[in-house]
Amino acid sequence: MSDRQYWESLLEPGILAVVGAGGKTTVVSKLGAVATSLKRPVVVTTTTKMGSEQVAPWNPYYGDDLALGEAYIVEQVKRGQMGSWFQAIAGHKVVGLEPELLDTLHDHHPDWSIVVEADGAKTKWLKAPKPHEPVIPANTVTTIAVVNMQVLGKPLTEDYVHRIEEVQAITGIALGDRITPEGVARLLEHENGIFQYARGKRIVFCTGCDAVHPSVVDTLLQALQSLPLHKVVLANGYRENCCIQKVLTWQ
Results as ranks from 00 to 15, higher is better:
14 G>M: 06
5 Q>F: 06
118 A>E: 01
153 G>E: 09
193 G>C: 02
213 H>N: 15
213 H>M: 10
176 G>I: 11
169 A>Y: 09
50 M>Y: 01
80 G>L: 12
140 T>K: 08
184 V>D: 07
141 V>G: 14
32 G>E: 13
21 A>V: 10
250 W>L: 12
61 Y>D: 04
49 K>C: 00
25 T>S: 15
144 I>M: 11
32 G>S: 13
143 T>S: 12
106 H>A: 13
122 K>W: 14
160 Y>D: 02
191 E>T: 13
251 Q>P: 13
226 S>W: 01
146 V>H: 06
46 T>A: 05
56 A>N: 05
53 E>Y: 03
162 H>R: 02
150 Q>F: 00
245 Q>A: 13
118 A>P: 03
3 D>E: 15
120 G>S: 09
171 T>R: 05
214 P>M: 10
45 T>V: 11
86 F>K: 01
119 D>P: 01
245 Q>R: 15
235 A>F: 03
248 L>S: 08
238 Y>G: 00
180 T>W: 08
59 N>M: 12
123 T>N: 12
46 T>M: 04
213 H>Y: 04
136 I>Y: 01
151 V>P: 04
32 G>C: 13
186 R>I: 02
97 L>E: 03
143 T>N: 08
110 P>E: 04
64 D>V: 13
201 K>H: 12
225 Q>T: 15
248 L>A: 07
80 G>R: 09
151 V>N: 04
223 A>W: 03
101 L>E: 04
182 E>W: 00
40 R>W: 09
111 D>E: 15
38 L>D: 09
2 S>R: 14
211 A>V: 11
206 C>Y: 00
142 T>V: 14
135 V>Q: 05
156 L>A: 11
204 V>F: 07
181 P>T: 05
177 D>M: 10
133 E>G: 06
62 Y>N: 09
90 A>Y: 05
7 W>R: 07
75 E>H: 12
241 N>Q: 14
225 Q>D: 14
52 S>D: 05
84 S>D: 09
106 H>G: 02
223 A>S: 14
178 R>C: 02
141 V>H: 12
194 I>L: 13
173 I>E: 10
170 I>N: 04
206 C>G: 02
226 S>G: 00
94 V>S: 06
224 L>K: 08
126 L>P: 01
51 G>N: 14
64 D>I: 10
72 Y>K: 12
121 A>S: 15
245 Q>N: 15
71 A>H: 11
52 S>W: 00
19 V>E: 05
98 E>V: 08
68 L>Y: 00
37 S>W: 07
207 T>D: 02
213 H>K: 14
